[in-house]
Design a protein around this nucleic acid. Structure first.
Lengths: 134, 134
DNA sequence: CAGCATCCCAGTGGATACTG
DNA sequence: CAGTATCCACTGGGATGCTG
């Protein structure tokens, strides 16, 4: 007998075929977060271990504290990052990945590998495309 | 002797540690494309097979032709999508994935699986976070 | 059919200054 | 230290209308 298709993770074509191309879908949701400028950089940075606010700011040299705070809040809201406040003076706050956040690292690593492996090809393609335009 | 680390694909922490957090890096580049609203949807749609412009528009119900054209051009520029013009009357244009574009499908599928598997957890986390705010 | 051109709005993200 | 508050510029992206 065939398994009920809806109970296992959808493959890419299946997801599209099933009408998940709109924003009712997990993929869009996840892609939005992955796509923003800082989320994944923060996730991989925290992947190396828990980190305090100021340490994160140092690790991400060109992020503004506004975006750091905001992105951290978003990640926390999505359950990817945990925030621990130690009521010392001055206050210290430590951020870390939750189990859910940790589980994102492997898929992300796959993507990063592809990015590294394909970057040269992409640059060549761009150069060729742009050259034609002249 | 130890291998020169720079010659193999970087892992996520390595990439960050190596100072690739800025925009000199492949990852940013790829994440930008992945993050935009339509690129990946088009890629997975073309993953099912070559497709004409109007067919793509039908497959992606809520995309505007402006964004379809533009995203297609970007993907073509990056060497992920090929554009074949058949000089018939009226003209027909077929889009398809290049080998490079095809090679992106598996990494993407991994991410989609994660998205499907984690979506519920994310929704729960959000609900919990938002509830506290009350 | 497969686009390009134009206009316009909303959201994203940067800079800066201030606070518990 | 770890934020919040304001202001502002840029651009992604939608709507519409025209063309080879």
């Amino acid at each position: 007998m065939n398994m009920p298709a809806a109970r296992r993770p959808l493959t890419v074509p299946e997801a599209v075929a099933a009408g998940f191309s709109l924003d009712n879908c997990p993929i869009r949701d996840v892609l939005n977060r992955i796509g923003d400028k800082w989320s994944m950089l923060i996730v991989v940075t925290l992947g190396a271990g828990p980190c305090r606010f100021s340490a994160l700011k140092r690790a991400l040299p060109d992020i503004s504290q506004r975006m750091l705070t905001q992105t951290l809040r978003d990640l926390q809201r999505d359950g990817l990052v945990a925030r621990a406040v130690f009521p010392t003076v001055p206050p210290s706050v430590e951020y870390s990945l939750t189990p859910l956040g940790l589980s994102l690292l492997p898929p992300l690593a796959v993507l990063v590998e592809w990015a590294n492996a394909s970057h040269d090809a992409i640059r060549v393609a761009r150069a060729g495309y742009d050259a034609e335009g002249v």
